[in-house]
Design a protein around this nucleic acid. Structure first.
Length: 876
DNA sequence: GCGGACTGCTTACCT
DNA sequence: ACAGGTAAGCAGTCCGCG
């Protein structure tokens, strides 16, 4: 979590040799293996009742898969043990007789039996015979898979394998019939079905077939599952030391709970060391004389909830509670938590750590469009809810109980709200993502988008009875790369960026290709099993913008990636984006459809990228390279066409074109051209009153007719730019938005000049405070890992550490530039008087130059001579 | 011993 | 562990220089 380091963040310098002390501190460090949880935390599901499937797990004691189901009526979670006799297995391409001769397989105590199965080869479409090695427990697969020459589908987690084989979809409603789960389909109105049919009228047969299966995923109701957010506060005698959960050496002084059933509760420990007077609160406050009683009460309350939400609970709250409870002599059987692989497991239901979910890059960029760029609770809540944590000017340990209750309860409230705001947007998003990826909630919220996509594709392979190919088998076909990346260390060439002029241009229309890469994947039938494959009758060559042939695509049958991406894209564009804007339905319904289209966007946009990612199990560099090559070909051809009909293309990046004052007719002409030539949709994305280009790529200020602005890439936008520069730039921006025609520009030039002189003077006179002057840079890794050089923020962090402050990865280091050996000092240790003013003038200069250049002003014109003149005058 | 040209590292952005 | 492209600022190195 990105912490803001405050002056209170001190820790003992002796922390270093903590390894030895740690071992003694954990009395239960080795009992993980034999620790057992005989208590039945969850009841079994009943025959004939309907439930929502939330997750599938493996129960080691019963050696069975278990489904975790939610009942809307009782608001409780139930489990259903597997009744189909499903067992773990993997596949191999040798005959059963040969497998029988491998002792490491057939002599293993967990070996069960062999079967011959028929699968379809994704490349040829032919049926192939394989031997299925069935075992009694999932760990046996790991032991055996290296004993056969080729082991297929041997790296899939058992519970996911179970989901694929039974065709389950987490997040959908099911009814228990004869002990098995049967999907309940939503009822659709006739016109809704018609609308969907229409959207896929021109699609291939394979897609049409699949559409029916996807409808429940998008249309089934999302249940508002009962859940509670929790947050704990721990007493810390030493300033700023973050308590170590495994040691759990300090008492839990307060636990807050906020439920979507209206619960607002704080359990607080009465203490001698602070004022324990408690006045009125809008939450229920329960006080405890002993910490043990407090924790016991906490366990009692949460057992009513099927879902627990935390913010960073995997790394802090849950393990702290767990180890602290053990320390207070709770037996493991009394604690409804367990810590497995750095995850806090809630044994009576499901625990979702929202920190991990909001940190997920795909969620940040595609679902929330970069609305937050720091990932602590305060930053995310401020950006999404407009609500922040209670500000403190002292340590938690010193707060009187009234303030502690207020602080603690706010955190739980915010955490809950992160899932309930905008009609449960985030909750619905999580469920939609679970349905699309076919993953249980706990795994989904803790993994990145490549895992989601992998799971979606594995599930789809199994549905078609396709054999999931080995990584090597894909790479023998689609690993050839033909282009060189511009950036050192990258594997292949990416997108085109057109060099923009510097200047102010009025009436700029931005056209962009609607989901360019996904559309290319769909229209060109791109997939791992269609690019550069042997035995192909119907080939289409992939040419980039230079006309060079890079790869070929096989058109004999639809590619799985093209089908799935195309289906999601068409559902999104033709059905759900429209529904999200429809005036015929309620605001609440519209917001549901907006969530649906956002969830799709995540998968659609990330699909191209994963095929170029080495760790993705279906990694196929030729696939990724084909997509960008076709992208370059498409945009280059279109830009040339624009220019041929007399339009001025000012700028473009990947899939966009900035046109200067185009006529409606010509716009329509281009759109028609693109549709006809490529079958792609080109759309008017934005219309600017004017755009101020700095002359740099990915760097401009666009102003809309109503005065609203878009700033892209400019220094003034970057998080690490000091606040005072951002503030001053903002004022300049306000000035600039008032411009309505080229005639207004000279007046603005004078005002810009004056403004900069003002800043210059204020700097010289130390008119800004240290916080405003601070550069804020994130530490991306542990201090020791900066071995190649020592950047400034690392220097500042080192100073902090030698002063006794703990610094961790993802911390934001605030430092100022000073005239000293290092050239920097952390704000906490700096004085205003030692600021290196010249360095700040440089920073002001580079930030403002980006806008000045657009207005044709040269910094040197008025700074070197005229600023000095200005000062000579003002000094008089 | 020092400065300029250069490369590499790091961070933060854009699509 | 989705991708590549662009920019800024600094760290560090090499080279030349009586």
């Amino acid at each position: 979590m990105a912490r803001q380091i405050t002056l209170f963040d001190f820790t003992l310098k002796k922390e270093q040799n903590k390894d030895e002390s740690r071992k003694e501190e954990i009395p239960h460090a080795n009992i993980n293996e034999e620790r057992r949880k005989p208590k039945e935390w969850i009841k079994e599901a009943e025959e004939g009742k309907s439930y929502f499937l939330l997750q599938v797990d493996y129960d080691g004691k019963k050696s069975k898969a278990i489904c975790k189901l939610y009942d809307k009526e009782t608001k409780k979670i139930y489990i259903l043990y597997d009744n189909t006799g499903h067992k773990p297995y993997f596949l191999t391409d040798i005959d059963p007789e040969k497998v029988n001769k491998i002792p490491k397989v057939v002599r293993d105590p967990s070996f069960d039996h062999l079967e011959t199965v028929i699968k379809i080869d994704p490349y040829s479409g032919n049926k192939i015979k394989l031997t299925k090695i069935v075992v009694k427990d999932p760990l046996a697969v790991r032991r055996m898979r290296n004993s056969v020459p080729k082991a297929y589908e041997a790296h899939i987690k058992y519970f996911n394998n179970y989901i694929y084989d039974l065709g389950l979809i987490p997040g959908l409603p099911y009814v228990v019939k004869k002990g098995k789960l049967e999907q309940l389909r939503p009822e659709l109105k006739g016109e809704e079905v018609d609308e969907i049919r229409k959207a896929f009228a021109d699609s291939d047969e394979m897609t049409k077939e699949a559409v029916n299966d996807w409808i429940p995923i998008f249309e089934s109701e999302v249940p508002d599952v009962k859940r509670v957010a929790i947050d704990i506060e721990v007493y810390t005698p030493i300033k700023g030391r973050i308590p170590d959960p495994e040691k759990a050496e300090f008492p839990i002084i307060s636990i807050s709970l906020a439920g979507n059933d209206g619960t607002k509760r704080v359990l607080v420990l009465l203490r001698e060391d602070v004022n324990s007077q408690i006045t009125k609160h809008d939450v229920i406050v329960e006080t405890f004389k002993s910490e043990r009683e407090l924790i016991r009460r906490f366990f009692d309350i949460i057992l009513d909830y099927p879902i627990i939400l935390t913010f960073n609970g995997d790394d802090f709250d849950i393990p702290y509670i767990y180890y602290r409870a053990l320390k207070l002599n709770f037996t493991p059987e009394e604690i409804p938590f367990d810590i497995i692989n750095d995850e806090g497991k809630y044994l009576a239901g499901i625990h979702i750590d929202l920190y991990k979910f909001f940190f997920n890059r795909a969620i940040r960029n595609y679902a929330f469009e970069g609305k937050y760029n720091e990932y602590n609770l305060d930053a995310v809540a401020t950006a999404l809810l407009g609500m922040s944590k209670v500000k403190l000017d002292t340590l938690i340990s010193f707060l009187d109980l009234d303030k502690l209750i207020e602080y603690n309860s706010r955190d739980a409230e915010i955490t809950l709200k992160l899932t309930t705001f905008n009609n449960n947007l985030v909750w619905k998003l999580i469920i939609l993502l679970a349905r699309i990826s076919k993953m249980g909630l706990e795994e989904l919220t803790r993994t990145e988008v490549s895992t989601w996509i992998k799971n979606l594709y594995y599930w789809e392979h199994r549905r078609r009875n396709w054999l999931i190919p080995l990584k090597e088998e894909i790479l023998t076909r689609s690993s050839q790369i033909k282009t060189a990346a511009i950036i050192k260390g990258k594997r292949y060439k990416g997108a085109v960026v057109i060099d923009p002029p510097a200047g102010v241009f009025f009436n700029v229309v931005v056209l962009d290709f609607a989901s360019l890469y996904p559309s290319i994947i769909r229209n060109w039938n791109i997939s791992y099993e269609t690019v550069d494959v042997e035995n192909c009758k119907n080939k289409e060559y992939v040419r980039d913008e230079t006309g060079e042939v890079l790869h070929y695509i096989c058109k004999d049958k639809p590619g799985i990636t093209a089908v799935i991406t195309g289906l999601l894209r068409d559902f999104r564009v033709k059905v759900y984006k429209k529904k999200a804007k429809s005036q015929n339905i309620s605001e609440e319904q519209r917001s549901v459809y907006d969530v649906v289209q956002r969830a799709m966007k995540v998968f659609i946009n990330a699909t191209y990228g994963v095929f170029g990612a080495e760790n993705f199990p279906l990694y196929a560099p030729a696939v990724a390279e084909s997509v960008t090559a076709i992208g370059r070909y498409v945009i280059t051809t279109t830009v040339n066409y624009c220019r041929s009909i007399g339009l001025q293309v000012l700028y473009g990046d990947t899939d966009s074109m900035f046109l200067w004052n185009p006529s409606k007719e010509k716009l329509e002409e281009i759109i028609k051209f693109v549709k006809g030539k490529f079958g792609l949709d080109l759309e008017v994305d934005k219309v600017y009153k004017f755009v101020a280009f700095s002359g740099l790529k990915k760097n401009y200020l666009g102003v809309y007719p109503d005065g609203k602005t878009d700033i892209k890439g400019m220094l003034a936008k970057k998080r690490n730019t000091p606040e005072f520069i951002k503030k001053e730039f903002n004022e300049v921006k306000q000035l600039v938005t008032t411009i309505n025609s080229p005639d207004d520009i000279p007046k603005i030039r004078d005002q810009l000049e004056y403004k900069i002189k003002e800043i210059y003077e204020k700097l010289r006179h130390k008119g800004y405070n240290l916080d405003e002057l601070a550069f804020r840079v994130m530490l991306s890794k542990p201090l020791e890992s900066y071995t190649k050089n020592t950047p400034q923020h690392v220097k500042a962090a080192l100073q902090l550490r030698s002063y006794g402050v703990m610094v961790l990865p993802r911390d934001i280091i605030m430092f100022v530039k000073v005239k000293s050996k290092d050239g920097v000092k952390p704000v906490q240790l700096a004085k205003l008087s030692e600021i290196d003013v010249d360095k700040y003038i440089d920073a002001v200069r580079s930030t403002f130059e980006q806008i000045l250049k657009a207005f044709g002003i040269n910094w040197g014109q008025f700074t070197t001579t005229s600023i000095d003149t200005f000062f000579n005058i003002s000094k008089k």
